[in-house]
Design a protein around this nucleic acid. Structure first.
Length: 789
DNA sequence: GGACAGAGGCAGGGA
DNA sequence: GCCTCTGTCC
């Protein structure tokens, strides 16, 4: 390697591991990047280094992420390092890049140029509609399950014809899958999985196209490789021709999406199938103090299936990891609200305080606590902007302007706002459409009577709107649609319609910024970058060894679509905006700007970091979750999830759990999570006394906690004054006198340990672990159990 | 067509 | 306990 290369300013602030990864030779590589080890930095610097050393041009790189956020961050950082037109580069999400690819080759892919994308909601309603039409028993085949079946199959790369059919049930499911595909094709729509699968198939089956892209992308970089599914991995392989290199970055310890098809095994497969010669571990952590890091390391070491990695830091031990046991979930919430307020008083910005939980249902009690204490907070998750009902309605009208044959959209708004078209009329229309093989829109003319008149009026309204909006700007189109559709009027009449109207107006803004910021309609202009050793962005296809007959797609704006090679036809701004709305579901609700405590699930915290982190509800059955305990992989995934949670914290980490919790309307008695026993005692500080192993309060229920309100007169924080919860412990001793963690004797099963208690009175039952007979649920009114001292 | 009541179900979530 | 879906009644 040339000395001037290693002295590049790009490499100055990298450690040895990072520098080694960034400057790897042109060959396949796997980078095992631990949490907080500068993964994004390595990815972006790698691209910048390849460009600045003149090895390749911006058109020769493809970088793939899972989220829009990650893609944007990569582009922003890269733009800060080099004067390069990042928008023209192939940096994006799997689905975003597939969309771009299919728009460029829509004819070969068998799609209309303006194909629209079904989001999860649209897909579910499409499946439901199909099921109704074909009289599928919803009891036997729940629509959600079929949706899951279809997406799952596609993510395995399977079409209906390739599915294994063993039972009558299988046969029926595959049949519906087939019908669903035909329906999508007829309506010119694709779901998320279809974007991937169709791109993959085109690359697989069309040699010239595949070779074109293989010659084009010398370097393929993949972020979060541990989260790729089977189809995504196969898709990557299509691009990886001889002479190309795949640079996969991932962390097997942070694989938490197996439940939705991610195959962490892709990492090992990649190493084997690509004969990866370069594996680099990034183990230097720049985020957390060592007490936090040691806890994470100790925990994850309990997993058996790992590639092996140990994070280290140069920072000192920092503060101990604080652990708090609460008598109830309410008390837990009270405690952490108080603690968070204290942190804020000490000058920690509220947005640097995160409260994490395993499942969304847990947020309610915490929200109540924060609300009552008037602490500003922000909850992540929930409905995104483009998923809101009023926005979906508006988008449906817009889709109908673009494509009258979009039956999903037609059905969504045919009677919204209400215009006298009931279910009966719609059914008749659907029958007519099926009989004539036409879309609902086209079938309307065949209808008669009063219902027919109403339907005709609706169609006429849509068609008139299409005429009226022809030639208007995107903004004007949306404004006309909002008025003519009656949506605004409808929500104005509704009592709580104010927010919805605000959102509809926000839609106009979203469209406006889409047009201006995304630069739609303007060809992205390539910047010659002479500073980069004479690298020129735009090279003629022939000079790059590319097939000149194929569309030139070197520098598209993110949503720029190349015009049809023959007709010059291109996507309308409206169609482009609708695609954007489907691929980028937008922010979820939040009072942005307000400095607020952050509430989210552990899953959504992945990739984020905070000064102070609370991980709450650390109880057996909740975290690790009950459903994960059935299989070994499940528990390991829960442990990885816990690992992700711990490694979010920079300075201060709190872990809390509660002896009882209201879940599904029932009080559950919980044992503290087994994960506590996997943490290094030396890094911990128990704010409440540590009980005997496997949970159960050594002090008994409601004891051991001073019932006097921890006097807030003193300046000492609640947690530092030994165990003084802000509310009195609830007297919740159940009548049967059992507690989780207690040892009991059963006449048949012998001695066992109480794991979980549920219900009360006659319904009370306990889950008990008998060493000889395994775990059993026993009805306490029936089972004769005697406590063992 | 809209309001209301009762039943059933309930992880994690990006595109 | 809460939300969603469905069915019923006016």
């Amino acid at each position: 390697m040339h000395p001037e290369v290693t002295e590049s300013p790009l490499l100055q602030h990298l450690n040895d591991e990072q520098r080694a990864a960034v400057t790897l030779p042109n060959a396949h590589a796997l980078i095992l990047a631990g949490a907080g080890s500068g993964k994004t930095r390595v990815l972006t610097t790698r691209i910048a280094w390849l460009l600045s050393t003149g090895q390749i041009g911006p058109g020769n790189v493809m970088a793939v992420t899972f989220t829009n956020k990650a893609a944007k961050e990569m582009m922003t950082r890269l733009a800060a390092m080099l004067p390069v037109n990042v928008r023209g580069m192939w940096i994006g999400t799997f689905h975003g890049l597939c969309n771009r690819f299919l728009r460029a080759h829509y004819k070969l892919a068998g799609l209309p140029q303006g194909f629209q994308i079904l989001d999860t909601q649209d897909q579910l309603s499409a499946v439901k509609r199909l099921m109704k039409q074909h009289n599928v028993d919803e009891e036997r085949f729940p629509a959600k399950e079929l949706q899951w079946f279809i997406s799952g199959a596609k993510e395995e790369g399977l079409r209906p014809g390739a599915m294994e059919v063993r039972t009558e049930e299988d046969r029926r499911k595959v049949e519906i899958f087939q019908l669903y595909e035909e329906q999508c094709q007829r309506e010119g729509v694709v779901d998320f999985a279809e974007l991937m699968l169709r791109s993959y198939e085109l690359l697989r089956d069309n040699d010239p196209i595949r070779e074109h892209y293989r010659r084009r992308f010398h370097h393929i970089l993949i972020d979060e490789f541990q989260d790729t599914n089977k189809l995504q991995y196969a898709w990557i392989k299509m691009f990886a021709g001889p002479g190309n290199s795949v640079f996969a970055v991932g962390d097997d310890d942070q694989s938490i999406y197996a439940f939705r098809g991610a195959r962490v095994g892709n990492m090992a497969d990649f190493v084997r199938e690509f004969q990866v010669g370069h594996q680099i571990k990034l183990e230097q952590n720049y985020r957390s103090f060592s007490n936090i890091l040691d806890s994470a390391n100790a925990l994850i070491a309990h997993n058996k299936t790992r590639l092996g990695k140990n994070l280290r830091t140069d920072q000192g031990p920092g503060e101990p990891v604080r652990i708090y046991e609460a008598p109830t979930d309410m008390a837990e919430a009270q405690w952490l609200v108080e603690e968070a307020r204290q942190l804020a008083r000490e000058g920690i910005p509220r947005h640097e305080i995160a409260i994490l939980y395993r499942s969304n249902a847990q947020s309610r009690v915490i929200e109540t606590g924060l609300f009552n204490a008037a602490v500003p907070y922000r909850v992540y998750g929930g409905l995104r902007f483009f998923e809101r009902a009023e926005i979906k309605h508006a988008l449906s009208y817009l889709r109908l302007l673009e494509n009258p044959n979009d039956d999903t959209s037609f059905l969504r708004v045919v009677n919204f706002p209400a215009r006298g078209i009931g279910a009966r009329s719609v059914e008749q229309l659907q029958d007519a459409a099926r009989a004539s093989g036409s879309s609902l829109h086209d079938a309307v003319q065949a209808t008669t009577g009063k219902a027919g008149a109403n339907l005709a009026a609706f169609v006429a309204k849509i068609d008139a709107m299409r005429v009226e909006t022809a030639g208007l700007t995107l903004r004007e189109i949306i404004e006309v649609m909002l008025q003519r559709s009656g949506l605004i009027e409808h929500y104005r009449a509704e009592r709580d319609g104010g927010d919805r109207i605000d959102n509809l107006e926000e839609l106009v803004n979203a469209a406006e910024s889409f047009v201006t910021q995304e630069g739609f309609g303007r060809d992205a202009v390539a910047l010659p970058i002479d500073e980069l050793g004479g690298t020129v962005l735009r090279q003629s296809p022939a000079s790059q060894g590319l097939d000149p007959s194929l569309p030139e797609i070197n520098e598209p704006a993110p949503d720029y679509v190349p015009p049809d090679a023959e007709t010059g036809e291109t996507l309308s701004p409206l169609a482009a905006f609708l695609t954007h709305a489907a691929l980028e579901s937008g922010d979820n609700q939040a009072q942005a700007g307000q400095d607020a405590v952050q509430l989210m699930t552990v899953h959504s915290a992945k990739g984020l970091e905070f000064d102070c982190v609370f991980v709450t509800g650390l109880e057996e059955g909740l975290f690790p979750s009950e459903r994960s305990l059935a299989d070994y992989d499940g528990l390991e995934e829960e442990r990885r999830l816990m690992y992700v949670a711990i490694t979010r914290a920079r300075k201060r980490l709190y872990l809390s759990y509660s002896q009882t919790r209201l879940l599904h309307g029932q009080t559950r008695y919980n044992v503290r999570s087994r994960f506590f026993d996997e943490l290094p005692e030396g890094a911990l500080k128990w704010l409440t006394p540590k009980n005997q192993s496997f949970g159960g309060s050594a002090f008994g229920f409601g004891m051991g906690y001073p019932t006097s309100r921890g006097s807030s007169a003193g300046t000492s924080r609640a947690s530092e004054t030994f165990a003084s919860p802000p509310v009195p412990a609830q007297k919740a001793e159940p009548a049967h006198g059992l507690r989780a963690g207690m040892k009991v004797f059963h006449a048949k099963f012998g001695e066992g340990t109480v794991l979980t208690l549920e219900g009360s009175g006659q319904d009370a039952r306990a889950q008990i672990n008998f060493p000889r007979h395994g775990q059993k649920w026993l009805a306490l009114a029936v089972a004769k159990l005697t406590p063992v001292p």
